[in-house]
C-alpha cells in the first residue's frame, strides 16, 4: 500500500495576472499537500497569494502553470462546467461577507446548493433543516438574513456549505466581519465539524488567535509558502 492520497495537492502552481510591465505573480511556484480531515489555516499579508490559492483550491480559478490535483485527479484539463460540478459536489464555501441571498429565508438559502443538484423539494427541506439544526439554528429557518445577527448569518452560511456533505469546507476569513464572541462561536462550530464529521477545513485568516484553532498553519509571503507547521509547534 502506498501512502494515503492527499485530498488536495499543488505541484509547482503559479498564477500570473496582467501582462507586460504590470505583470503580477500572485503565486510563484507553490507545492502543497493537504490530507483528508485536516484543519488548515492559511495566513499571510494581503497580496501574499493566499486568496488566489483559495480560489484555485475552490475551483473558482485555474493555475497559470503547474498542476492542481483534487483527490489525485489533475484539474487543468477540466472544462468550466466540470469545475462547477466539482464545486457543487465536493466543496462548501464560507465567505467573510456571509454571501447569503437577501430577502430569502435561512432554510431557502441552505437549500440552494441542493436545488442545483436537482433534489426533490421534500428531501431538500429535510436536509436543510437538519443542517440548520447542526449549526444551532433550529427555529430560525424562516428568518431572512436581515432578521439575523452576523454570527447567525455566518451559521446559515456554514449550514449551506455542509448541507451537501462536501469533502472540503473552504472558509475565507469566516470571522472577519464578526465580534470576538461570535467569532469564538463560529470557530467552535467549525472545529466541531472537523472533529466530529471529519470534514477537511481550509481557512484563510490573518488573525493568529483564529488560526490557532487549526491543526496546521501555512503562511504565504510573496506568492510562496514561507512556513508550514503543525499546531503543536505553533502553540
Amino acid at each position: 500500500m502506498t501512502a494515503p492520497q492527499p485530498l488536495i495537492e499543488f505541484r509547482a502552481v503559479t498564477k500570473v495576472y496582467g501582462m507586460g510591465e504590470a505583470l503580477v505573480h500572485a503565486l510563484a511556484g507553490v507545492d502543497l499537500s493537504i490530507a483528508e480531515s485536516e484543519f488548515v489555516a492559511i495566513m499571510g499579508p494581503s497580496g501574499s497569494g493566499k486568496s488566489t490559492a483559495m480560489n484555485i483550491i475552490g475551483c473558482l480559478d485555474t493555475p497559470s502553470s503547474g498542476e492542481y490535483l483534487f483527490q489525485g485527479i489533475p484539474t487543468s484539463h477540466l472544462s468550466r462546467a466540470q469545475h462547477t460540478l466539482l464545486r457543487r459536489h465536493m466543496i462548501g464555501f464560507v465567505f467573510q461577507g456571509f454571501n447569503l441571498l437577501p430577502r430569502t429565508s435561512a432554510v431557502e438559502n441552505v437549500e440552494l446548493p441542493l436545488v442545483y443538484r436537482g433534489m426533490a423539494a421534500g428531501e431538500r427541506r429535510d436536509r436543510a433543516l437538519k443542517a440548520l439544526a447542526r449549526v444551532g439554528l433550529e427555529g430560525r429557518a424562516s428568518h431572512t438574513p436581515s432578521e439575523l445577527s452576523g454570527g447567525q448569518q455566518q451559521r446559515v452560511a456554514i449550514a449551506r456549505a455542509i448541507v451537501t456533505d462536501p469533502a472540503v469546507l473552504l472558509a475565507d476569513e469566516p470571522t472577519g466581519n464578526l465580534d470576538t464572541k461570535a467569532s469564538q462561536e463560529i470557530m467552535d462550530l467549525v472545529t466541531a465539524l472537523n472533529r466530529d464529521q471529519r470534514i477537511t477545513v481550509i481557512m484563510v485568516t490573518h488573525e493568529p488567535d483564529i488560526a490557532a484553532y487549526a491543526s496546521r498553519v501555512i503562511r504565504f509571503v510573496d506568492g510562496k509558502v514561507e512556513s508550514d507547521v503543525a499546531r503543536t509547534e505553533v502553540a
Binding site: L60, R80, A81, T84, F93, N99, L112, P113, Y116, R160
Partner: peptide
C-alpha cells in the same frame, strides 16, 4: 456570483 460559486452551472 453566489449561485455560481455554490454549484450553479452557466446553463
Amino acid at each position: 456570483g453566489i449561485r455560481l460559486a455554490i454549484g450553479a452551472l452557466e446553463s
